[in-house]
Design a binder for these strands. Structure first.
Length: 568
RNA sequence: AGGGGUGUCGCCAAGUUGGUAAGGCAUCUGAUUUUGGUUCAGACACUCGUGGGUUCGAGUCCUUCCACCCCUGCCA
């Protein structure tokens, strides 16, 4: 192994190509800030399904921990019982595991800290740094001021420590109704950072919590909970998205006021992808308004949807590695994701033949009662994958696209008088075309060259086209769901005046057709991924069952002919 | 109008004592090819939002202006 790299001069302690997060960690490790320790966490709120945007955060947090021999916790940020449920907790765990990450025994919940959080709140009150406010939500909003005008102090701001303590304890005891009081940090109502204008720490909510049940009727807010949870878990680098930049000042304030170990919050830009939406609100709308079939609809960017679509965890991880992480708002081209799936599937998917839009071919010089079983490699580039047997007979199906009566110049598939190769089988020449009353092609009569058995000829003559095919008599039927982008707009997050993303839903995002496939297709079970030669990568949908095969097209193959054709 | 951020090729993204623009996706050529797939070879930023300044030299320093994002939940 060449060792040019490790000979780098000592002064160059930065590795080119590293993202700013890893540069910060390197610097912290160099300065000994956290004793060269790296401990991150992935902190989802269990109020929805994870999507590709979360995958970016998961790969970052777990990835960084792994690279630096550190740890990464899974923490459910469950401080708002109104929105959270165990159903979401379970789906999140399934998705993180599926992506390939392991939190070992470090599964935490903010709700595990409710008692500790409460004690610390009393500590804050005793230190004169928090008070119970009895203004209504509306009044608090008015008192907060605006972005350009300072706020003003609540008339309850100067209550004594004793009164605050008494009120707060009675809040916990359930003596008050929702909204009657709120615990607030006493900071600065004229701070230019609105987050610092005496933020709410606790609110009263007589609601059952998915884990703590009815034990509590006051619940801590995010800003108060998150930093303390990070601190208690010994998190070193608390990575979150850009919209929390303004909250960092409060994050630091709370830990400072309580004299707690300080984790470092660092923000990065969240993922945006062309051709899809990643906001929770929009995703919920698509599902509840039935624009898609459910949270795991293969057209959705949810991890469960992508899993069902046939994406692999490897491909998603590779995608996250390739897009990098920075502080600049950006929109990643969906093509980047497709590249990553194709790259992985190309290596692992067995090749099969299936026809999605069949037209019949009759080989008129092939014996009507003859059937030949050809042995075909499952992947010509990987002998190790083995082979399968495929039957050839007089009547076949080929793709309707693969025949044209009046082909344009660069078309080199089948057309009258032309010879093409049927993959791994024979050369055939089109002799005659039959049509129905509407002029639609119903049957193509061909002759085959017995000498070309296997797909090559003794005289070495070349043909320009190689087509996939299926024996009509042996074909198995399968439902194929052909997906396209959910939106017709490049970026559905930015829509023209007066329209919303829903106005750009692609009516052809799902086309379900009956495909005819080679018999070996029956060997594949739900979740299996294959390549239908010349068409794309497909995977077996869970809707499949005994005698019923349903396939999802994960992604098409790259198609330079389609591009060429468009130029015409 | 206050505060916090960001602006490097169509897209993502390196660029850290200022020294003369990595890489990937996409795109376009060409070669190979029993998938118009794969693979391989090559092309693709005299320029870093903008004007000005410092300097022998600036994407990197100073400065003007512009654009975009976030913040006025008892959501996270």
């Amino acid at each position: 192994m060449e060792n040019g790299k490790e000979k780098m001069p000592e002064t160059s302690n930065r590795e080119p190509g590293k993202d700013f997060i890893r540069n910060i960690i390197d610097a912290d490790n160099a300065s000994g800030r956290f004793n060269a320790r790296v401990h991150t966490r992935f902190p989802p709120e269990p109020n929805g399904y994870l999507h590709i945007g979360h995958a970016k955060s998961i790969c970052l947090n777990f990835g960084v921990a792994k690279e630096y021999n550190g740890k990464c916790n899974l923490r459910f940020d469950d401080t708002n019982p109104l929105k959270e449920s165990t159903e979401f907790v379970e789906s999140i765990k399934t998705d993180v595991r599926w992506l390939g990450f392991d939190w070992e025994d470090r599964e935490f919940y903010s709700s595990d800290y409710f008692e500790k959080l409460y004690e610390l709140a009393e500590q804050l009150i005793k230190a004169g740094k928090a008070y119970v406010d009895s203004l209504s939500a509306e009044e608090i909003r008015e008192y907060r001021g605006t972005l350009t005008a300072p706020g003003k102090n609540s008339p309850y701001r100067d209550r004594s420590v004793e009164e605050n303590l008494d009120l707060f304890r009675r809040m916990r005891a359930g003596e008050f109704a929702d909204g009657q009081h709120v615990l607030r940090a006493k900071i600065d109502m004229s701070s230019p950072n609105v987050v610092m204008r005496d933020p709410a720490l606790y609110r009263i909510r007589h609601v059952e919590h998915h884990r703590s049940g009815n034990k509590w009727c006051i619940y801590p807010m995010y800003d108060y909970t998150h930093c303390i949870s990070d601190s208690l878990e010994g998190i070193t680098h608390s990575l979150c998205s850009l919209e929390f930049e303004n909250n960092r000042e409060l994050y630091d304030w709370v830990l400072e006021a309580l004299g707690l170990y300080r984790s470092q919050q660092t923000e990065f830009a969240r993922l945006n992808l062309t051709r899809t939406v990643l906001s929770k609100r929009k995703l919920i709308q698509l599902v509840t308004e039935k624009h898609v079939r459910g949270w795991d609809d293969p057209r959705l960017p949810t991890l469960s949807g992508m899993r069902r679509r046939g994406y692999t965890p490897e491909a998603i991880r590779e995608f996250c590695a390739r897009i990098g992480v920075s502080r600049a708002d950006s929109v990643v081209d969906f093509a980047m994701l497709e590249f990553c799936v194709r790259e992985h599937l190309n290596r692992i998917a067995p090749r099969l033949m299936a026809v999605t839009d069949p037209v019949k071919v009759v080989i008129d010089n092939y014996p009507a009662d003859q059937v030949e079983w050809f042995d075909m490699p499952l992947n010509p580039e990987d002998e190790g994958m083995g082979s399968r047997k495929v039957p050839f007979a007089r009547e076949l199906y080929i793709e309707r696209d693969d025949f044209m009566e009046n082909p344009p110049a660069k078309y080199f598939r089948l057309s009258p008088g032309r010879e093409v190769r049927l993959r791994y089988a024979y050369y055939i020449t089109c002799k005659e075309v039959r049509h129905d009353a509407n002029g639609k092609v119903t049957e193509i009569i061909c002759s085959y060259d017995p000498e070309s058995r296997g797909g090559g000829t003794p005289d070495g003559r070349k043909v320009k086209g190689t087509l996939h095919w299926v024996s009509a008599a042996h074909a198995v039927e399968a439902s194929a769901r052909l997906y396209d982008h959910l939106f017709t707009l490049e970026n559905p997050n930015v829509t023209p005046e007066g329209t919303t993303f829903l106005d750009y839903i692609n009516p052809d995002s799902l086309r379900e057709v009956t495909a005819r496939a080679e018999p070996s297709l029956k060997d594949y079970v739900a979740g299996a991924r294959v390549q239908f030669e010349r068409l794309g990568y497909f995977c077996v949908d869970p809707d499949s069952g005994p005698g019923k095969l349903v396939f999802n097209r994960t992604v098409t193959l790259r198609d330079s002919w389609a591009k060429e054709e468009k130029k015409e």
